[in-house]
Amino acid sequence: MTYPRLLVLLTLALVALFIASLLVGVADMPISDSLSALFGGGEGPLPMVMREIRLPRALLGVMVGVSLGLSGAALQGYLRNPLAEPSVIGISASAALGAVIALQSGFAALFALALPLAALVGAAICVLLILLLAGSGGTLSLILAGIAVSALSSALTALVLNLSPNPFAANEIIFWMMGSLADRSFLHVWMALPIMAVGWGLLALTGRGIDRLTLGEEAAASMGVNLKHLRLLLVGGVAASVGAATAVAGAVGFVGLVVPHILRPLVGARPARLLLASALGGAILVLTADVAVRLILPGRDLKLGVLMALVGAPVFFHLIWRMRGRS
């Protein structure tokens, strides 16, 4: 399959799933009514459901998926490791810690965007720590710094849960950490979109560099790649996009790991081409999972992150199985 054809197919699938996401929900409504309510507007509950609940949910699905897929592809390219995913540099764990502290302290209840804002602060602190720790060392120092920051964030999150005097707060924290797109509004879209867009822009600029990194750091540098700039673009881009994604959706794993893995053979394994393909693929996967959680157990609030792990882990088993077969 040629690269342009792959992009067209992925885009068509994305559009189809976006429409599906708009049409699936607790309130069972005829398709024609739903669409006319979405585009025509008017009074009553139907336009409200379509415009204020389902549209932001579908948009957030696309945004979160693009962020996770793109970040995963960029990180795998930069680290030259198919096992890398956004969580390796600790952004998601730190964003989660910010959110958990906000939930525990009651800050999250003060105003609508308090929780995502706290998560973004967590992500920002994580970036500073990583850049400080990893300095100008190679990719290994970046991974080690990420693991260290991630471990610290997880430990502090556990500490907050541990010391939580109120079981309801602890419960709320655990549910938030499972990741979900339910009950989000346009406020979340408008908060996350500009930050994610900056992140996507930074990651899009890594293409040339990560393509050359196929030959290793020294060869890439000798071909004119500025490794320090590349690392800043990468860490900044992953932090902005994944930090914002975690802030609005909680922790959603596996997308950044599995999507680049599946799409790599279809783009001739070229890291730069994998960026756009994985962004589209990530959006497709998150929308699919978010439609699935509404169909599988309607009314039970199955969490997106839980379903993703349930589906993602077997896909991963399969990949390992295939890899074993090849070697």
Partner: peptide, 11 residues
């Protein structure tokens, strides 16, 4: 041309 012969991906 570095000594380490690294080719990270099957391009």
């Amino acid at each position: 041309l570095p000594q380490a012969r690294e080719i990270a991906w099957p391009v």
